[in-house]
Amino acid sequence: MQPVERVISFVLAIEDLKRVTRKVRPLGLDRYENSAEHSWQLALFAYALAPHAGFALDLDRVIRMLLVHDLGEIDTGDTMAFVEGGWEQRKADELAAVKRIFSLLPDGQAAELLQLWQEFETGTTPEARFANAVDRAMPVLLNLNNHGQSWRENDISYERILKRVRGQILEGCPQLWDYLETRLSEARESGFFDWDAGS
């Protein structure tokens, strides 16, 4: 195939990310969000939040990471962040999926996107840590603003939320964690989490 044909094959293949349903609903809607709109929102969130990261960032790299970080879900489906166990196999399956998807592109672009996906997964650069913080924070923000919809539906306790998101958000964007920690604490004090008393 010609390079442009390969790019078109790729862009049509990633259309399937719109079919991957997540566990949280967009604010004010009855349906669940999909992974494509999640990735788009994260890219804009990262752009707006970058001045508050507390350290220098290659923002272009962060945005590209966020645009590709969930493409493996085209083959594997979404896994809620609070699932415990089985992550090693899920990540191996996602790696196989992104290799398949990226291979549709011309070689140089395929290698670049795979490297970005792996950088996000390993979290070893400031950009990857910031991108992971944004990824962890967005569902928290949605849940804080939709009465804990996905937390209620999936029996996720306040303590489990903190255990899963605190470290990555604090490491990737301390100011973002300061904001969320306060919001979560206020929500708990006001009885927001009364539904998880038996968890």
Results as ranks from 00 to 15, higher is better:
12 L>S: 10
12 L>P: 09
12 L>H: 13
13 A>L: 01
13 A>H: 12
16 D>C: 00
17 L>E: 13
17 L>D: 04
18 K>I: 11
19 R>Q: 13
20 V>E: 03
21 T>S: 12
21 T>P: 02
22 R>Y: 12
23 K>F: 10
23 K>W: 12
24 V>T: 14
25 R>T: 06
25 R>M: 06
26 P>G: 14
26 P>F: 10
27 L>F: 11
28 G>I: 09
28 G>C: 04
29 L>I: 15
29 L>K: 15
30 D>Y: 07
31 R>F: 05
31 R>G: 08
32 Y>E: 08
32 Y>G: 01
33 E>L: 09
34 N>T: 03
34 N>P: 08
34 N>K: 08
35 S>T: 10
35 S>L: 12
36 A>V: 11
36 A>M: 01
37 E>Y: 11
39 S>G: 15
39 S>I: 05
39 S>M: 03
41 Q>Y: 08
42 L>C: 04
43 A>H: 06
43 A>V: 07
44 L>V: 06
44 L>R: 13
45 F>K: 04
46 A>S: 13
47 Y>E: 13
47 Y>S: 13
49 L>K: 11
50 A>M: 01
50 A>S: 12
50 A>K: 01
51 P>F: 01
52 H>K: 11
52 H>R: 12
53 A>S: 12
53 A>D: 08
54 G>Y: 10
54 G>A: 07
54 G>P: 04
55 F>H: 04
55 F>C: 07
56 A>Y: 11
57 L>M: 00
58 D>I: 06
59 L>A: 10
59 L>D: 06
61 R>Q: 12
62 V>E: 02
63 I>R: 00
64 R>D: 02
64 R>A: 02
64 R>Y: 04
65 M>S: 04
66 L>H: 01
67 L>M: 14
